[in-house]
Amino acid sequence: MLPLTLDHVEFSVNGRDIIRPITCEIQAGTRTMILGPNGAGKSVLMRLCHGLLQPTRGRVVWHKAVAAQRARDQAMVFQRPVMLRRSAIANVMYALKLAGMAPVECRLRAEDVLEAVGLASVAERPARVLSGGEQQRLALARAWALGPEVLFLDEPTANLDPNATRDIEQIIGAIHASGTKIIMSTHSLGQARRLGDEILFLSEGRLAERASVDLFFRQPQSPEAVSYLRGELP
């Protein structure tokens, strides 16, 4: 279904522009990092791409899916993931069942992904009593289980300690290696460098700059990015 094309996408609420016209094409294969200060519109942009919000003007175009061997085309892990009031494994199975997978298959697949994210030992625990880091891993597992072509991640390591952050980054690496396109936002420049191939830099709802990770950190072109990297908020 990639590439994803944004065609003059705008989003405003009550006359306030949150996303100003953005036109770009997002390709398969690369890991796309969305950077930008608080309130720049990162979360809104991902919601627009994911289809949770409708653009006020412009279009979000996915190319036709080819031979979908996937439970779902796209998935999203939110800044604050919602855990259903049931066990960890049931949370994963819930997503699979909604996607139309047979119950027996659901359990096997759920066990596999929980194993892969290191949650096999807490699979039967109520999801809501898991720690923040465990919940974040569970949210990743739930999305990964669906085998999506595109996975949106909204600040997947906010509020996590360094060890938990490393775990999550490893899992994201594994998801990417399994052939899923990663589009994620982060406030950690180190993380963007470690995980990313390209940067989309947002500032006040505008796509201020788009560059490879290497180029972006070596030689940012836009004044907004320059001052952001210097740690000066405008």
């Binding site: 994911h50 949770l52 779902r72 939110f78 919602v82 259903l84 009031r85 997503a95 909604l98 996607a99």
Partner: peptide, 23 residues
Amino acid sequence: EYEEQLRSLGAGTLAAARTLLWD
């Protein structure tokens, strides 16, 4: 609390209602 998560997972009105009643 659940709306975006459930819509993201592809839940329709009926599935969402059943999920919320249980949760």
